[in-house]
Simulated assay, not measured.
Amino acid sequence: MSAHHPFRFPKPAWLNSANTRTAGVYAAGALFSLGFYCLIDIAVWSKSALNPSDPPVHITFVDWIPGICSALGMLVINSIDKSRLSADSFSYSGNGVAWKARLVLFLGFALLAGGLAGSVTVLVLKYIVREYIWPTLWLGVGNVVANGLVMLSSAVLWVAQNMEDEYTYNLAL
């Protein structure tokens, strides 16, 4: 078993290809776009005449807060240079680079998790507790779906960016 791999089986060769990395980046973009499409869809539908709820329920700023948190979390997570996470305190960048990068990464994941948890909270408190039926319930469910897609998009982009580092490293050898 190799000393630098934590797993017994090696990664498949297709994981290190540039095409797989490109497909991962496009998939992450598609998931992110689909998530924000869901947010825009529920916002437009809540203001339309087709909204059957009585009294009328509309999307307010409270419904947008989880999506904003998720988008900020994705930006924070994917703006971190991956090499900083394993840097030691003797690197050229100064003291404590690794723990600072890990702290920022943790805050990004906390924003993502907070966005998803916030959308579930809005769904339960604003739509389920008040016992709205399905067409109106989509306002809350769509918010959860949107935040879940943004979180999934962030994970796919993180993996795709890590593939790039290993791919360029293999090319350098």
Results as ranks from 00 to 15, higher is better:
Gly115Arg: 01
Asp63Thr: 04
Ile59Met: 08
Ala23Trp: 11
Arg102Gly: 10
Thr20Met: 11
His5Gln: 10
Leu137Ile: 03
Lys126Phe: 11
Leu31Lys: 06
Lys126Pro: 00
Val124Arg: 11
Val122His: 12
Ser48Tyr: 06
Pro12Thr: 06
Val62Met: 13
Leu157Thr: 03
Pro56Gln: 12
Phe32Met: 11
Ala43Cys: 06
Ser17Asn: 03
Thr168Asp: 06
Ala87Asn: 06
Asp165Arg: 10
Gly142Tyr: 07
Leu103Ile: 01
Tyr92Ser: 09
Gly118Lys: 05
Ile80Ser: 04
Leu149Arg: 04
Val144Thr: 07
Asp81Arg: 13
Asp81Ile: 01
Val104Cys: 04
Ala13Asn: 12
Pro6Phe: 09
Leu173Pro: 00
Asp63Phe: 10
Thr20Asp: 04
Val97Ile: 12
Val156Cys: 08
Ala110Gln: 03
Asn51Cys: 02
Cys38Met: 15
Arg8Met: 12
Ala30Trp: 13
Thr168Ile: 14
Val104Ile: 15
Ala49Glu: 14
Val76Asn: 00
Glu131Asn: 11
Asp41Gly: 08
Lys11Trp: 13
Phe32Glu: 01
Ile133Cys: 01
Phe7Cys: 04
Thr121Cys: 06
Val144Asp: 09
Ile68Met: 08
Val25Phe: 15
Phe109Ser: 01
Gly108Val: 02
Tyr167Pro: 00
Tyr92Cys: 03
Phe106Lys: 01
Lys47Tyr: 15
Leu50Tyr: 14
Tyr167Phe: 14
Ile68Leu: 15
Val57Asp: 01
Leu149Met: 15
Leu116His: 05
Tyr37Thr: 12
Trp14Thr: 04
Tyr92Pro: 01
Val156Gln: 02
Tyr167Gly: 04
Met1Tyr: 11
Leu173Arg: 15
Ala101Val: 02
Asn78Phe: 04
Pro12Tyr: 05
Val97Gln: 06
Ile42Gln: 05
Cys38Ser: 10
Phe9Gln: 11
Leu85Met: 07
Asn78Gly: 04
Ala18Ser: 10
Thr22Asn: 14
Met151Trp: 13
Pro135Thr: 07
Ala113Pro: 00
Asn162Tyr: 08
Gly114Trp: 05
Asp41Ser: 13
Ser93Asp: 13
Pro55Gly: 03
Phe9Glu: 15
Ala27Asp: 02
Leu39Ile: 05
Asp54Pro: 00
Val62Arg: 14
Gly115His: 03
Ser70Tyr: 04
Gly35Leu: 03
Pro135Ser: 09
Gly118Met: 02
Ala172Tyr: 15
Ile68Val: 15
Ala49His: 08
Pro10Asn: 09
Val76Pro: 01
Gly29Ile: 02
Leu125Asp: 15
Asn147Thr: 14
Asn95Gly: 09
Gly35Pro: 07
Cys38Glu: 15
Ile77Cys: 14
Ile59Leu: 09
Leu111Gly: 00
Asn143Phe: 00
Pro6Gly: 11
Tyr169Gly: 03
Gly94Gln: 08
Pro12Lys: 13
Asp88Pro: 00
